[in-house]
Design a protein around this nucleic acid. Structure first.
Lengths: 110, 110
DNA sequence: CCAATGCATATCCATATGGGTATATAATCG
DNA sequence: CGATTATATACCCATATGGATATGCATTGG
């Protein structure tokens, strides 16, 4: 078995930096493909394929407008990722709490 | 160019479900390889290689203990992922508000 | 010191990637 | 209707994946 398809889930889709760039660009609002091509400095077919992947995992939705296709962000698709990492957040934040506790103790000793 | 290496960054490393399982298991604390093998039901060489990937992106750290190697979670490595998705969080939380606005508009048009 | 235990590494294979380039399709303009 | 614009798809290629299996290398126990 090879590596999971990039379209397998949001985790795989978003592992590609260019696709994150596309999503980042779409936070500003709906955009046609050509605008993304300019923004990313990638070849058009390449952008189209990245968009396909993002569409397949539900991270973006398309809308036809004349001969353009407007892509829009669908942020919900990223929620599973957020939920997963969020469960680790307290683990790296604990260090600060510990530090604070120590500082608190030091202050009280004064 | 092929897909980015799984060891390229935390995003790629964590795109593999088995590796997320390993990290999840390590939230309970340090574990030797064999324990992870049992927990995941994977072949030992396979687990070792997943651990290598996780080590290379800094998501875990190893410690030698006799003839065992104890792996420990290094949650900080996941922070970049958290930071990235977190910037999208308000977008999916806003949707409900937007939906309400649209419904409100539709009602008024009647 | 030799056998056993615990891991890591090497090799083989099928697969899908992302890049490039060429081409197909759809819509609009003159 | 033909030409142009905007996208999508089809190929070709090099690469690295994840699974399987075999083997190498330490450390420990008898």
């Amino acid at each position: 078995m090879a590596r999971a398809a990039t379209t397998a889930d949001a985790f795989n889709a978003v592992a590609e930096p260019r696709r994150r760039e596309i999503l980042d660009a779409l936070t500003q609002g709906e955009r046609p493909v050509n605008e993304l091509v300019d923004l990313l400095g990638l070849a058009q077919p390449h952008v189209s394929r990245h968009l396909r992947v993002l569409r397949e995992v539900g991270a973006v939705v398309v809308r036809d407008e004349g001969r353009q296709r407007l892509y829009r962000l669908n942020p919900q698709a990223l929620k599973p990722i957020h939920d997963w990492v969020a469960s680790y957040q307290h683990l790296w934040e604990e260090r600060f709490d510990l530090l604070e506790d120590v500082l608190e103790d030091l202050k009280e000793e004064h």
